[in-house]
Amino acid sequence: MTKRRIDPVTGTETTGHQWDGIEELNNPLPRWWLWTFYATILFSVIYVILYPAWPLASRATEGVLGWTARNDVAREIAEVDASQAQMREALVTTDLSALDRNEPLLAFATNAGAAVFRTHCSQCHGSGAAGAPGYPNLLDDEWLWGGMIEDIAYTVRHGIRNEADPEARWSQMPGFGDMLSRDEIATLVAHVQALPGGQDPLAGPGGALFESNCAACHGADARGERTMGAPNLTDAIWLYGNSDEQLTDVIANGPFGVMPPWGGRLREAEVRAVAAYVHGLGGGEAPVADGTE
């Protein structure tokens, strides 16, 4: 059966296989291909022994090297973390108000803070930090509790109106729904809406109502009071909006915006980094005495 046979048409040897008179020609493969094939088999056997390979019910065989991709990632993260230890140390010990004079440290803090912001802050304040009704826009130049870098760091560290941190920033605007009549609230809404346009806070039909109910916190000039997180009512920025409905709701029910404290969850270096990032978003305030810019 295996006698050599030459196909008369092509002059090529056949393998001796026939199907309905059709013969298979034999153009032999180079032998080194065969050896290459054996080498790949040998490689796969060694690989299966050394590395994770066979899938089992809940996990795969481990391989004698004990290699996993997770360990690689963990090691790389630890390496990066270790390489940044010095910068973190410097950030924790530095005077934050002087951070803008230390260019490499500021660059490090801004980049690290951007990562912290995207992970922990963007859920409420938005990935672009533009905020949402009730969640302040961090890009503008109005700050409820202060816009200097230390103020921002304190707010991040302790949060606002939360029970978890005794040092949290705290204040509460009462709901005036029980104290004032509907007409009085309507008068106040119209009064407050007119404040940015130059309306005297203490004059006009709403002036008396404002003086007795609002001026204690928002000030007789309606410019707000940062120690109490009371917003400036004379500017163009409205945390909850300035339509009739929105302002009526705020005055009648009293807003109570909560921010959790991050001091326990983030490292101090991360708190400072995110403060530096937010401060650098375009609205950060510099100490008044520092007249360098």
Binding site: G128, A130, D235, A236, G282, G283
Partner: peptide, 17 residues
């Protein structure tokens, strides 16, 4: 920068980055 497209500042001016 399109996130957000503009920012209103306290004095009512509009800023783009």
């Amino acid at each position: 920068i399109r996130n957000p497209t503009f920012v209103t500042l306290a004095d009512g001016s509009v800023r783009n980055a």
